[in-house]
Amino acid sequence: ARTNDPNWHVFRVSSLLPSPACTASKATSNSSALSVVHQHGPCSPLHARRGGAPSHVEILERDQARVNSIHRKVAAAGASVVDPARASKGVSLPAQRGISLGTGNYIVSVGLGTPAKQYSVVFDTGSDLSWVQCTPCSDCYQQNDPLFDPAQSSTYAAVPCGAQECQELDSGTCSSNKCRYEVAYGDQSQTDGNLVRDTLTLSASAKLPGFVFGCGDSNTGLFGQADGLFGLGREKVSLASQGAPNYGPGFTYCLPSSSSGNGYLSLGDAAPANAQFTAMVTNSDNPSFYYLNLVGIKVGGREIRVPTTVFSTAGGTVIDSGTVITRLPPRAYAALRSAFARYMGQYKKAPALSILDTCYDFTGHATAQIPKVALLFEGGATMSLDFTGVLYVSQVSQACLAFASNGDDTS
């Protein structure tokens, strides 16, 4: 066993699956931080009422839908010329403006209104506008908590049509001097409602008066039982941007290693002392997304052989809280898979799991070992992944390398 080898993870096979009970201890970084839990885990307030968590195959299929929609959005933003040959064949870009929700994996609990009432919302770095379902509602799905009721809040106000926030909204329209918003996600989910403002309570000591968000009165789609969604994208309306004057620009989150643990989301927090940094890249065609430059990958302490142009010509890398599995350019993924498999020869191979094609059966092993995988970013930042970031485990007999290829990038 390579217990002391810094290039290997050695772990008990029994620890691969999450505990069925919530084992979270307080993981927040300070008093204004929100607790982050997995939407379908035992710590989630949505857990008890849910109609059954999605299967691993469903999670991965929805993940692929989110990835496809990110690619479509990027392609649509970059497309300046319509290819007449494609157009004549009836090929067209999708009309959806947003990206698919995926499985909305992580949720936070926030307070809205005065007095504050708590709502469990998905947090998403891939979109900007925050919203909750509101009453009166013409078309709302069933959610975890009672709907947000503007009449019960002394600090609620509608955003008038002439307000800057309304005019800056991509989808803002005016109706009876109310600013109407619409967000259409890439999986056909949609929310429509009034743009409003009210006090957002992050903790007893951290409030954000006048927080602008959507008060959804017509909401359909794959929102599960979440009370809404909070966007942490880069545009002005996002929670990250609105919180900047109070807490400073930026935010930090930590996602727990297991769905039975918890992490945190903290606005404006200083970076941890041990953080390694890489440049945050802006793409004006896709101003919501946080781009960075991935330049290499190490497996078992050795950098895999991939020309740096494979990453640089791939269009960059987006970091996304709502995509489950990291997608790599095909040549990079092929090299990663090959290197990983070379180290895993002692284990029985297992069938593929949806988009994950490199899987192992750890049945009969008390402990197991896998090579460490590290992502290398421009500027020298190295992210040596936790072992829960290397394997996606559906069961002990099917633990898969948690990466996938972007497929045919000429398609």
Binding site: A27, S29, I70, V74, L232, R234, A240, A244, P249, G250, F251, T252, Y253, C254, L255, P256, S257, N262, G263, Y264, D269, A270, A271, P272, A273, N274, A275, Q276, F277, T278, A279, M280, Y290, L294, F311, G315, G316, T317, V318, I319, D320, S321, G322, T323, V324, I325, T326, R327, L328, P329, A332, A381, M383, S384, D386, T388, G389, Y392, A402, N406
Partner: peptide, 30 residues
Amino acid sequence: IAILGNTQQKTFAVAYDVANQRIGFGANGC
């Protein structure tokens, strides 16, 4: 484009340092 998904981000404190236009990764963040 490549996408850095949330599985790989687990246990890292991921800091979006907007003021300095950089993203940081702190191991063992939670």
